[in-house]
Design a protein around this nucleic acid. Structure first.
Lengths: 131, 131
DNA sequence: AGAGCAGTTTACGTTAACGTCAGTGTAACG
DNA sequence: CGTTACACTGACGTTAACGTAAACTGCTCT
């Protein structure tokens, strides 16, 4: 109970600067698995580790669904071989996706950087379009 | 008239690789102003210039609303230095965002790559065992 | 006249990640 | 026992940028 290494929903919110709604939402999406005593939630250190990774993933712009799948990597439940292999392949696919995304971003950055360096073309471009 | 320098909606779609729905949507959002003859639309060279910028803006990650505002600025008063500056600053801010995003993406890629390296031996073991 | 396009309007559907009530419960404080 | 403080469960609302389906209208060719 109180002596356990768990946090109430409010403590959890304060610790990670998220709303209760967010934590409940993550639970509904099977990203977190707080202990349910009666109706209340108690978040374990495992939940905290997962939330930390969830928030980091979000900062990187990944969807919650992506994150949920990646989280299984960190879970390390090596009990099931087929599952491990599957998550490994998922991670590989995800990595390829990320690298593609980065490549696109690089192109866009380079382009925009050139526009800014030239400074005038883009502005002039908008002028022409509006005449 | 037919001799005018305009394109039908289909010609416009083919030229820019967008759908009719997209062009109608942009018109409803006041990003484009095709001539309406009866019920049909005819896109002028001005529409084409604007669409070109709209698509470029989208590649840079600007929202349609951002783009509309920028285009409108020059509609009302094409020769305002302050407005040009505002556009420039918007682009700069967006570039900074993209660069930050890229940096974070790099970190994520590296981390995920490490995870994959770490689990490779285990996976290899499973593969051998599965033969 | 009929078929067959191309184009049009209207309007509901989609996805993500929660926000925002509304109504109910529970536990502790005074 | 009443009030305050939190927590819980639905469930509808929100934003962006279109997709998609339904039901026309208008032309042209045969």
């Amino acid at each position: 109970m109180l002596t356990e290494d768990t946090l109430s929903i409010r403590q959890m919110c304060d610790a990670f600067e998220v709303t209760p709604r967010t934590l409940r939402f993550y639970e509904s999406k099977e990203l977190l698995f707080p202990i349910r005593q009666g109706t209340k939630r108690f978040f374990t250190r495992r939940d905290r580790a997962r939330l930390k990774l969830i928030l980091r993933g979000k900062r990187f712009g990944f969807s919650l669904e992506d994150i949920r799948q990646i989280l299984d990597l960190y879970d390390e439940d090596g009990s099931n071989e087929a599952q491990a292999l599957k998550t490994y392949e998922l991670a590989q696919a995800r990595l390829a996706q990320m690298e593609a995304q980065r490549a696109e971003l690089d192109v866009a950055i380079t382009e925009l950087r050139n526009e800014l360096k030239a400074s005038e073309p883009m502005i002039a471009g908008f002028r022409r379009a509006a005449e």
